[in-house]
Amino acid sequence: MFEQQPEDLRFYVKQLATEALQKSEPSTWFEVLYTGAKGDTAKIPWAKLTPHPYLQDWLKNHQPFASGQKALVIGCGLGDDAEALAHLGFEVTAFDISPTAIAWCQERFPNSTVNYVVADLLAIPSQWHQAFDFVFECRNIQALPLNVRSEVISSVTSFVAPSGILLLITRVRDTEVEPSGPPWPLSDSELAQFENVGLQQVEKLVFLESELDVKQVRIEYQRHNYLTDLNYTAKA
Rank of each mutant, 00 (worst) to 15 (best):
S126C: 07
V73C: 03
P183E: 11
R173Y: 09
L144M: 15
S67T: 12
E151A: 15
L168K: 14
L208A: 08
L88V: 11
A236P: 11
I165R: 08
V172W: 08
A192G: 00
P179I: 05
T100F: 04
P6F: 10
V135L: 07
F132H: 12
L78K: 04
A236Q: 15
A192Y: 01
E31R: 01
A234Q: 14
Y12N: 04
Y226F: 14
D80G: 00
N140R: 07
F65M: 13
I153N: 01
A192D: 02
S67W: 11
V214R: 07
A47C: 08
I124T: 14
E211D: 09
V206T: 05
T35M: 00
R139C: 06
E178M: 13
E203G: 01
Q15T: 13
F136D: 04
V214A: 10
Q200P: 03
C138T: 02
Q200H: 09
E137Q: 08
I219W: 13
Q22W: 03
L186Y: 05
F132L: 12
S158D: 13
A37N: 04
R171A: 11
F109C: 00
L122D: 09
I124M: 15
N111H: 08
P125L: 14
Q130W: 03
L88Y: 12
F207I: 01
N196C: 03
A161H: 05
A17L: 00
S112V: 01
H129R: 06
A103H: 12
V135M: 06
Q200L: 09
E209W: 05
Y221H: 02
L9F: 02
K23Y: 10
F207P: 03
T18V: 08
T175M: 08
L212Y: 07
F11C: 07
L78F: 02
E91D: 14
Y232S: 15
R108G: 01
K70N: 07
A192S: 01
